[in-house]
Structure formats: structure tokens, C-alpha cells
Design a protein around this nucleic acid. Sequence first.
DNA 1: CTCAATTTGTTCGTATGTATG
DNA 2: ACATACATACGAACAAATTGA
Lengths: 258, 258
Amino acid sequence: MKKLSSLYDRSRIPLYIQVASVMRQRIETGHWVEGDKISTLEELEAEFGVARVTIRQAIELLRDEGLVDAQQGRGTFVSGKPKHNRWLNLANDFETMISLVKDNVLERVHIEENVVLPDLDESEGTAAAEYTFLRSVQYNDGEPFSVVNLHLAQDLFSRDRQRFTHSAALPSIVEMKDLKIVHAHQTLTIGVADPETADLLKIGLGEPTADCRLVLVDDGGVAIYVANIHYHKDCFALRVDLLKKSPVANASRGLETA
Amino acid sequence: MKKLSSLYDRSRIPLYIQVASVMRQRIETGHWVEGDKISTLEELEAEFGVARVTIRQAIELLRDEGLVDAQQGRGTFVSGKPKHNRWLNLANDFETMISLVKDNVLERVHIEENVVLPDLDESEGTAAAEYTFLRSVQYNDGEPFSVVNLHLAQDLFSRDRQRFTHSAALPSIVEMKDLKIVHAHQTLTIGVADPETADLLKIGLGEPTADCRLVLVDDGGVAIYVANIHYHKDCFALRVDLLKKSPVANASRGLETA
DNA sequence: CTCAATTTGTTCGTATGTATG
DNA sequence: ACATACATACGAACAAATTGA
């Protein structure tokens, strides 16, 4: 039998899904424009190095999503763009971050007091004795776009249980005048959704997410705020202005990037 | 439990791969520590709500990766962490970026002169009449970690063909004293690998990548440098210092470089 | 209008992969 | 380990719709 394509060997994800992903991206990025006739099955067959039926399966997927319209004898045409909600969620400075977070609609799904920090940090301060673990889901237009797993120093949480329980923690923290944040940083990576995250974000298990680790350290060198945030990959974009030293002026939500 | 069965509906990725992803993540995050005996097949079976054989298939995958060691009659033990090479490739300011790029080992895989910019930009300057398209792969330790698709204004390229052909473009550009960059920004999203990118990065078709669009605009408002960079998801991390050097004193928001 | 070329749609047979019990 | 069911992928052939010479 013919070997499966070499690309397929590298990831065991079904071929037709891989192909569909690529075609979907081409539509999204405008490489294939709406109304255009895309390559014929034979061309695609050759380009991707897969069987005709496999291409058809991929097109079938896109058709179900309303992205293409295949007409016998004529060709396959792009019939729409995937609605992508790219919100600029992340900020490059503390001020912007606070202002963004303040308006977030969130739902606390889990709270557990008096826990220890599970994964000790490397060089981002020392751990407090006890933390409160808070998991929340952030919504935009009723759709979940991120899951926040926050370890908040227990003594901080105890100071205003009510507020920390029902609203975003960050604004509450900055309002504590006696508290000095001497260090704050974000590290962004790409991860995969575990069962809980997948469930909360309504995505598939193992699908990619933008993972952001946000740590605040006080003047005692203690990591008082350790958050692991998983963003839905389609609801995430980060814009960095490379020349301006001042905060980016993009405080508005719902801003399109493409 | 059929909790996972419903998750499975959302992503047609084979179940045992999804399960393996989760287990891999547990090892990576330290939820399962090296040397530990992980849950028995029966427990996992119950937790994930899948058949015993499916769990075994997942464990088989992890065993091939050297992450676990299954011993008949004893149990399955964590035998190692996935080695991930997380290099901090991206920068938040222009100077840092240049210094990072300068040392990059890259291989030009494709050059095409006198092309037009394919996807016109939204609000990031006007397009030049003609561009040179350069595709290169960046290596670290012999492993490819990013693919750069660059559209460079044709007149710039013509000024030093030799150099642009064989080394990174960014340093060459900043050295042109008569050229004024008035705007530079990066936008980061999560995308999927198309056939060429997958081939060059040695990953599977449709696997997630960190996509970075980098645009430089000169004092004429022309986008002279438009790059779409695809980073291997495991070779990518972006660290943002939220307090450092950023004027937290919100008053100082002047200093326009235009 | 017919013919031929093009292009999508359908079906068959076969092999292998996935998942259950 | 086995039996079963269904999904995935291939190649090839054929059917049906469209287009234009």
C-alpha cells in the first residue's frame, strides 16, 4: 500500500482534519478571498499529496461551517469568512491590564482556601505559606474566552473574601495601598487544553490554547498572585508597539485585528 | 463516565491521543511527579470514561516518548519530563529585537523579486509598489524553530542584494541612516501550519504555531517591511515585564516618535 | 446544438486505525 | 487476546453538471 503522506506521520491527527485546518486558515487570512473559486480537487490533491476522497472530506467539513460552496461542474467557491473574534486581551503594562480586567465579565467556578502552591516557581519570588485557589471563566458576548487559575496569597484573600469571591482580583489588589508590587510579569506560551479547561472553554480536549502565566511579587519577595490563564486560541491576539515606550492606547474591547 | 465522550464530539482527534495529551501535561506541570506511580488503569479508565485499551494506547504513546515506564504487576511510573526548549525569542522593543535577530542562524529557502504585497494591510501604512519576498528558516542547535515570510520593499532590497540575500534583514535596515522608521509593531496570534511551514518546521500539517506579524513603516507612511513569522509552538515563549521601564506614572504619555 | 473538456459527486474494494466490551 | 463496529485513507472508475468552442 502507499505510505501515508510523510506529513501525516508527524501528527496522528486525521489527515482530512489537517487539510481542513489549512484551508480554513487560507480563507481566514484572505489568501483565498470570498467569492473566489479555489483550486480544483485535482490540484489540491497534488498540493497536499493526499487522495481525492480525503480532500473531499476536508471540503465537507468547511461546507458544514459555511465557509465554502461546492458546485458540481463549476468548482468550489469561498462563501464566507470564519467569524473570528480577536480581542486584544493582553496588555504590555500594568495600567492597561488593570483597565482591561476591570470590565471583564467573569464567573467563579471553583474556590478552595488554604492550599499550597502546586508548582514552585523558579526565579519569580518565594512562595507564601498558603494560598487560595480561584478558578474563573471570563466571558465576552456570552462566549467563554479564557479560564483563569489563580493562586492568591491566603492573607490577601482573607482581607476581602466577599470581593475576591465575586469580582476580578487584580483591581482589588492594586487598591490595597499598603501593598507594594515590586515585580510583575507575564509569560506567554502555547499549551493544550486539559479536560476542565476544554470543558469550560467549550473546545476539544488537547486543542491549543494561549497560556499566560502572570505573577505579582510584593516587596517581601513573596509571590502573592500566581495566575495561569488559558485563552481560547481564536479569542486571543497580542499587539506590541515596538517603538512607543508609553502604554499602548488600545484600551477598547472588541477591537478587530484583521 | 461519559464526560469525555462528549468532549470527544467536539474534536475529532483520536481519543487515545487526547488522553495522552492530558497525561503528558500532568507530567509537564508536575501534577504527576517523576518516580511517582500514576493511577491504575482502572482508575484512569473511570476518570476519563474510556475503555481500558484506549488508556493503554495513550500510555503506549507516552512510553515511546520516554515519559512513563509501565511494569506488569507493579504499575506505571513517571520516568521523565518532556524536554521542552523554550527560548525567549520575542522582544517588546525594537532594540532588543535587533540584538536578538543579529545572532540568528538562518537559511534562505526562497526569494522572489518584484512581487506585490498579497494581503493588503488594514491600518498599518500604505503598500509599496513592489516587494521582494524572502522566506527563511531560523535554526537553533540545528533544529528549525521559525519560518519567516518577509515582504521587503523592492527599493530597499535592491540597495544591498548581497546582504539581504544572505543574512537577517532587520539589522541591515536599521543601519540605513537615511531611513526613518516611524512605526513598528508586532501582532501575535495562534495559527496552524500550512504544508510548507509544516515541512520546514518538521511538524504536522495543521499543528498550532505562534504567528507573529511584524510591520515597519517609514516616514512616508509606507510599509517597507512586512513579515509573517511562524514559530514552532514549543520553541516559543514571550516574557513581558509589566512594571520595568514602563512609566507606571500614568501622566507621562507623550513622547511621540512620529 | 453537440461535443469535449472540466470539475465536482458517488461508489467500490482494500487496508489500516480507532474504540468498545 | 479476541470479536465487532465504525472511521480513516488510498486509488480508481464512473456519473452528473457546467462551460465554452
